[in-house]
Amino acid sequence: MTQKHILSLLVSAALLCGLLAGCSNTNGDASHASSSASEPSSVSSESAPSSTAQADTSGLFNKDFDENSLFSVDGTAAAFEPSLGWGPGVSGCSLKSVQAAATLLVWADEANLSARTETAIEDAYTQWYDNLSDSEQEGFAEAWPMIKDDAAALLEDKDAMAGRLEDVGLDAKELTFSEKDWSALEDVVDPLVPEAKGEY
């Protein structure tokens, strides 16, 4: 009888140890998640007007890209996300265009595209583009000329575009980009974008 009591106490102790170990790991994960959530983001938290959908760029801006890798480019889908779902004539297209241009400019700079090979940039773009539906590809082809125009305007004088940037929740003072990184992207993407069929 005593052996059964000792055995049951040992089993109970083992279960209790396992339970406590599990709780301590859960607490560690929760504190890690809360510290990650409290990290500051360079994107303004202002809400965008109802005429435009504000893209989630929190994972894009100030991302640590591996500048030593010439053969892979990260963050392509997040960078091009604001370029989808609209086109000329769509409500709020001028705001969506400046948001898409700003996002691509910042990504090109942070990914240091001017130091990447054309093949690496082309691979990153085509992998993203090939996963789009036919309507998304057509929409991007329609939007691309507007995005390029706004990118050129931002490169020339981003302070003059501060109002439009603020309307989509971006702060002109916090955006950094360079013409050489944008040119590296534009030179690769331009010949690959098909002629739009004018569905928008």
Rank of each mutant, 00 (worst) to 15 (best):
L155I: 13
T2Q: 15
S34P: 03
R164H: 11
Q54G: 03
C23I: 12
C23T: 09
Y200R: 00
P194E: 14
V90L: 01
G198V: 01
S50W: 10
G22K: 07
L165K: 00
A53V: 13
T52H: 07
A101C: 12
S24D: 09
Y200K: 04
A13S: 15
E156D: 14
T103W: 00
A21N: 04
L185K: 00
K63R: 12
A53I: 12
S34R: 15
Q54I: 04
L170I: 08
D29P: 02
T126A: 09
Q99F: 03
K96E: 05
L19Y: 13
M1E: 15
A21P: 02
D167L: 05
N68S: 15
S69G: 04
S178C: 05
Y200H: 08
L16D: 06
R164K: 11
D181H: 11
E138A: 03
D74G: 06
P49R: 09
L170V: 07
V98H: 00
D167W: 00
M1K: 09
L7D: 14
S51C: 13
A196H: 06
A53P: 00
G22Y: 04
S58V: 02
I121E: 03
S8E: 15
A111C: 04
L60V: 06
S47A: 13
L192F: 08
D109K: 09
D150E: 13
I121D: 02
S36V: 13
A14E: 11
A143R: 00
A37C: 04
G75E: 07
A151T: 09
E142H: 04
F71N: 14
D159Q: 15
A162P: 05
V98S: 01
V188Y: 03
E110Q: 14
F61P: 00
S178K: 06
V73M: 02
S183V: 12
I121L: 06
D187L: 09
D187I: 04
V90Y: 00
